[in-house]
């Protein structure tokens, strides 16, 4: 599918969600279960991207010390946990990856 079409449909859906309940005020309430489920969307979607990204190296499953991206990812996760700082986390992960690749 063309990237412009993807962006257009993705943008319309995003706008639709932002507009939905402002428009439907008083006519529709978000069910409690959905409300609760929405909290888990970011960790679920992002972990589903992160984990294979770190554990598959060139399409092959790899949990060894040769997997530099996995090690750098662990460094980044530790920095993220303690600093809660996005830029610092990215910087730490990138530096770790570059250094590990030099080893």
């Amino acid at each position: 599918m063309n990237i412009w079409l993807i962006m257009l449909i993705g943008g319309l859906i995003t706008f639709g969600m932002r507009f939905s309940l402002i428009y439907l005020f008083g006519k529709f309430e978000i069910p409690e279960t959905l409300r609760r489920a929405l909290h888990y969307v970011p960790p679920a979607v992002l972990s589903a991207i992160i984990v294979p990204e770190l554990l598959y190296q060139g399409g092959k499953f790899s949990v060894t010390l040769d997997n530099t991206r996995l090690l750098a990812g662990i460094v980044a996760a530790i920095v993220a946990w303690y600093s809660k700082n996005t830029l610092l986390t990215i910087l730490a992960g990138m530096v770790a990856l570059v250094l590990l690749q030099l080893l």
Partner: peptide, 19 residues
Amino acid sequence: MPLDFALPLTFIAMVVPAL
């Protein structure tokens, strides 16, 4: 520069503090 790695790193920065 392995810039593509910055994407999963960005996601790590978003997820980990929320756990």
